[in-house]
């Protein structure tokens, strides 16, 4: 009986799965947007609007596939071969890492290709606490106190986590001076009970699993939870100092040139700066980079914002000092383990 036939059928099936995945690119224009964790809802909305707009303008039907995860992990997957047409990651540094690891995959001057340093939206770090703020948290000093349980993701994998870390450091440096900053940050991570790999994971831990007293969250996540998902059980506390998070977007030269999707990719990213898109951005609690549109969203509190470039000498330097192997963060974790 037909074991030969069966084997052939299976082999054909296996090859078919090949063809299935290759063929997907040929039939209509598809873009792969490799993004970071919290932007899921944003791009779900935006992709619909963009597809309509692009079809009306050029008649071409675009399908955008999304991938989400911790920013560092997502960057690594692109390095390892995930064929992203565009990357919309948490920080410019992760995009730089792609270009460094694979020469030519992303042009060196990518950041200048779109307005505002390729940041169509910005955000910052705020505190999310439980309703009634039982631990009376008002600022960074309150969360390093003993007995306060802090939830924040792991800076080694999560872009959001690195913003959290630098925001804390910036505050400590401003209030206590540079040499006390490290101890301050150490106290902060000493209070962390769960280190999730991505921002969304930390949110889950705090909101769903009910762990921790305060979540260091992206501002947009915090608003999302308070307004929609938290069931009215949470409040936002804005610290006095925080960091301007400038998530960056760009297209991946190596991929779009090969796939012939460069024009679509550029249109996709440019449209993020359009008024319609900026309003979607604001609706999802990101700060639109267009100052006129930003005025339409008064919920964004005004606070003192430091930036990576001005206050930390840029991401490369910050990464080398703090997040690289054996950097400040690794040392802090080692010290904490010793206790």
């Amino acid at each position: 009986m037909d074991k030969m036939k069966l084997t052939t059928v299976l082999f054909v099936l296996f090859l078919a799965s090949f063809a299935y995945s290759q063929g997907k690119a040929a039939k209509k224009v598809t873009l792969l947007n490799v993004s970071y964790d919290p932007t899921r809802e944003l791009y779900q909305d935006y992709n619909k609007v963009f597809a309509e707009h692009y079809k009306a303008k050029t008649g071409v039907e675009v399908t955008i596939n999304q991938s989400h995860g911790g920013s560092g992990g997502q960057a690594r997957s692109v390095i390892e071969g995930n064929q992203a047409d565009v990357v919309t990651l948490a920080l410019a540094f992760d995009i730089d890492a792609i270009g460094t690891a694979r020469k030519g995959l992303i042009a060196d001057n990518w950041i200048a290709r779109f307005q505002q340093n390729s940041s169509p939206y910005t955000s910052t770090i705020v505190f999310l606490v439980r309703k009634g703020n039982p631990k009376g948290i008002k600022d960074w000093d309150d969360i390093v106190k003993p007995g306060v349980n802090v939830i924040t993701p792991d800076p080694k994998t999560s872009g959001g986590a690195r913003w959290n870390y630098l925001a804390a450091w910036a505050y400590a440096r401003a209030k206590y001076g540079e040499d006390k900053a490290r101890d301050f940050v150490k106290k902060l991570y000493g209070n962390v009970s769960v280190l999730d790999p991505g921002a969304r994971g930390s949110t889950n831990t705090f909101v769903q699993r009910g762990l921790g007293d305060v979540l260091l969250a992206w501002e947009n996540e915090a608003h999302l939870i308070v307004k929609e998902l938290g069931g009215g059980n949470f409040e936002i506390v804005t610290p006095t100092i925080s960091i301007l998070a400038e998530p960056s977007v760009t297209y991946v030269d190596g991929i779009v040139n090969k796939r012939g999707t460069k024009d679509v990719a550029i249109a996709y990213l440019e449209y993020l700066y359009s008024e319609a898109a900026q309003r979607i951005i604001g609706k999802h609690y990101y700060r639109p980079s267009n100052p006129e549109i930003a005025k339409e969203f008064p919920i964004f509190a005004n606070l003192k914002l430091v930036t990576v470039d001005k206050d930390f000498g840029g991401w490369a330097a910050a990464h080398k000092l703090h997040f690289a192997d054996n950097g400040q963060f690794d040392q802090i974790m080692r010290d904490l383990k010793k206790k």
Binding site: S17, F18, Q22, G81
Partner: peptide, 25 residues
């Protein structure tokens, strides 16, 4: 993966294994 043993060869012929269905299989 692109830096894997077969990475260069696969990239040259645009064969996608990881981050695609064959890799999952």
């Amino acid at each position: 993966g692109s830096f894997g043993w077969f990475g260069a060869w696969l990239m040259e012929y645009d064969i996608r294994i990881v981050f695609a269905v064959p890799g999952i299989v």
